[in-house]
Simulated scan of single mutants.
Amino acid sequence: MPATALFMIMLGIVFGTMTVITANHWLTAWLGLELNMISVLPMITKQKHPRSTEAATKYFLIQATASSIMLLSSTLNAWKTGTWEITQLNDKLSCILMISALTMKMGAAPLHFWLPEVMQGTTLNTALLITTWQKIAPITLLYMISNHSQMEFTLLIGTLSILIGGWGGINQTQLRKMMAYSSVAHLGWTMAVISIAPNTALLNIIIYMIISTPMFLLLMNAPTKTLQATTTIWSFSPTTAILLTLLLLSMAALPPLAGFTPKLLIMDKLILHKLAPTTTVLALSSLLSLVFYLRMTYLMGSTIPPTTTQSTTLWRLKPNHNQLTTMLTPLALFNITIMPALMM
């Protein structure tokens, strides 16, 4: 892709997100989301492959449908309340429609069906963009309307997302689809607490982005796209294997790593609001996600010498000596230090 075209695309993505963050009017927010969506489409189709074209078509149709529902919701609210301000979403039906549209844009269950297919049809660079940056604008809008959100509705979406994210990830062997279902599960924790403690929900999604960004960058650096090929990462780059293991355990929410911190805070907020049974269901459902995280960790660790590799060695690849793993080491260490820091 030419540098000028890439610069214009990235400028559109950043400007669209900034427009949504600073918006106070529903039409301005809708305009920012549309600019963001149009800018991402060339990134998805840059492979020039039928699979990427299919992914771009699915992404466009889903995002356009969500935008239509969003316009319908804001119009209904303006009709009944006489205002287009984002923070004045007082009508219950409009609020439910708006939450549904925003969860469809992010890929939360039960409107998640497009996310694994789109991520599988794109490069890891674009998959990183979809799972991190593209969630900033919808999460910001959900944060703005959190005081009008229906707690029962957001809890239902959160519970379904955690269940489907864990259950769907177990059945996958493609790493991009596994990361898509991991994104669905983490969005579930965010949605479960967004109407009760929006600041905690924001912390959860920020820590998820901080953890998933170096993970995607390391997967780009490693010669693997499937679960079986992860057994060759140690022979390719031991440092990459160690960092990936640490990041995977953090995403699995094992204490004392960073991924456990927002989950603990979310469960604390839910219990304080007398939702202990729901908290128990969410905690048990997260064990499904733990299964495939630990499976990836086991496969990477099972080939450490003197154990023999369990798959065909990628003999054409030379050991990696670039500086990416060194640059990402501080982010990996962040996964150890954030837990004690927040507990103080």
Rank of each mutant, 00 (worst) to 15 (best):
T224V: 04
T224D: 05
T224K: 06
K225H: 08
K225E: 05
K225V: 09
K225S: 05
T226D: 15
Q228C: 03
A229S: 15
A229C: 13
A229E: 15
A229T: 15
A229Q: 14
T230L: 14
T230G: 14
T231V: 06
T231A: 13
T232H: 10
T232Y: 10
T232K: 07
I233M: 08
W234P: 01
W234K: 02
W234F: 06
S235H: 15
S235M: 14
S235I: 13
F236G: 09
F236E: 11
F236A: 03
F236Y: 11
F236W: 02
S237Y: 09
S237T: 12
P238G: 01
P238A: 02
P238W: 02
P238K: 00
T239P: 10
T239M: 12
T239L: 10
T239F: 12
T240A: 07
T240Y: 08
T240H: 07
T240N: 09
T240P: 07
T240D: 07
A241S: 15
A241M: 12
A241C: 12
I242F: 13
I242G: 08
I242K: 11
I242M: 12
I242Q: 10
L243S: 10
L243W: 11
L244T: 08
L244W: 06
L244C: 04
L244A: 06
T245Q: 11
T245Y: 10
T245G: 07
T245M: 09
L246A: 14
L246P: 12
L246C: 14
L247V: 06
L247K: 05
L247T: 04
L247W: 05
L248C: 07
L248G: 03
L248F: 13
L248W: 13
L248D: 07
L248Y: 10
L248I: 09
L249D: 02
L249W: 00
L249C: 02
S250D: 08
S250C: 04
S250T: 08
M251N: 05
M251T: 03
M251G: 04
M251A: 04
M251D: 01
A252M: 03
A252P: 02
A252Y: 04
A253N: 11
A253D: 15
A253P: 12
L254M: 08
L254C: 04
L254Q: 04
P255L: 11
P255I: 12
P255H: 12
P256R: 06
L257T: 03
A258S: 04
A258V: 01
A258M: 03
A258L: 03
A258N: 01
A258W: 02
G259L: 00
G259M: 00
F260T: 00
F260S: 02
F260M: 00
T261F: 06
T261W: 05
T261G: 01
P262R: 01
P262Q: 03
P262S: 03
K263L: 02
K263D: 05
K263V: 00
K263T: 01
